[in-house]
């Protein structure tokens, strides 16, 4: 809360959504995280369209969860998905790294999702590679019942990295990146389950950034946290925006307002409005959006 207000204030007025892609936005928050020269980080300049969703229809068995979604998400920006429960925002998020594949009876009936211009639903796409590039943080923090150190290195070890000096370095970097280093540096061998809820969630974020993804999907990362822990995570998101493209699903409109550059409002499986966060909250174009952000329903 404390830090939230200035962020919104400091965010420079962006151009309307349609043209914002060309326009590099100004980064108000100083990033004190040393930017890792990950493969993803270098390829997409700030503000360029990274994720391009077009005409997406999505089904759970016979019921349609998403209707004709068209959305362009920019690199190195924080994009928030808001909307009432069951509006399809989490579903869309899980489409982006194909976590929905794990649920029986789901299918993309129409449309494409392109990341870097590559349709991720193409048959020759390797889901495993995709998920390495598109990380995810879940609603309920889910550290593995392993040590903090092992939690962070899990993804790296999967990719065959065994150099312990390198691993140590990345663990520190990731934990610092997740603003957790100072709290856990003396007990890296302790179980990740022993941390508090907010720490667990930041551990999960650290775990996600350790593999240097390009996009980080956050599915209501703060819904199970108390306000103090929430503030810390939000702060963290601000720090990460310089290095990663972040898409966050949230229930909490203030959170969207505080953290995100752009906001998409969903209702009943449809994308109602997508614009700069400030515009959404101050002068929404759509009456439904206005009703929602002003708290009249949802």
């Amino acid at each position: 809360m404390v830090i939230a207000a200035p962020i919104l204030m400091d965010t420079p007025p962006s151009a309307p959504a349609k043209s914002s892609a060309e326009k590099p936005s100004v980064r108000p928050m100083p990033s004190f995280v040393p930017s890792a020269a990950g493969p993803g980080a270098s390829t997409a300049p700030i503000g360029k369209t990274l994720v391009d969703i077009s005409h997406l229809d999505f089904f759970y068995n016979t019921s349609q969860a998403l209707h004709d979604i068209n959305l362009k998400i920019e690199a190195k920006n924080v994009t928030a998905f808001i909307g009432p429960s069951g509006c399809g925002k989490s579903t869309l998020l899980r489409c982006l790294n194909r976590m929905n594949d794990l649920i029986d009876g789901t299918r993309v009936a129409r449309g494409t999702i392109k990341i870097h211009g590559v349709d991720i639903y193409q048959p020759d796409v390797d889901v495993i590679e995709l998920r390495k590039r598109v990380g995810m943080v879940f609603q309920k923090s889910n550290p593995f019942p392993k040590s903090i150190y092992e939690n962070i290195t899990f993804g790296l070890r999967l990719q065959g990295m065994n150099d312990s000096a390198k691993l140590d370095e990345i663990v520190e970097k990731s934990l610092r990146g997740a603003a957790l280093w100072d709290e856990v540096k003396d007990r890296l061998g302790a179980s990740g389950l022993g941390l508090s809820g907010g720490q667990q969630q930041r551990l999960c974020i650290a775990r996600a950034i350790a593999v240097e993804p390009e996009v980080i999907l956050m599915d209501e990362p703060c819904s199970a946290l108390d306000p103090v822990a929430t503030a810390k995570v939000e702060e963290l998101i601000q720090e990460l925006r310089s290095r990663f493209t972040i898409i966050i699903v949230t229930h909490n409109m203030q959170q969207a307002a505080r953290c995100s550059d752009k906001t998409a409002f969903f209702y009943l499986g449809k994308l109602i409005e997508f614009a700069d966060t400030r515009d959404i909250f101050t002068k929404p174009a759509n009456a439904q959006t206005e009703a929602y952000v002003s708290g009249r329903f949802g």
């Binding site: 390829t43 990341i115 590679e129």
Partner: peptide
């Protein structure tokens, strides 16, 4: 795909 984003 761009060199950095080889998901195929």
């Amino acid at each position: 795909a761009p060199a950095g984003f080889a998901i195929q």
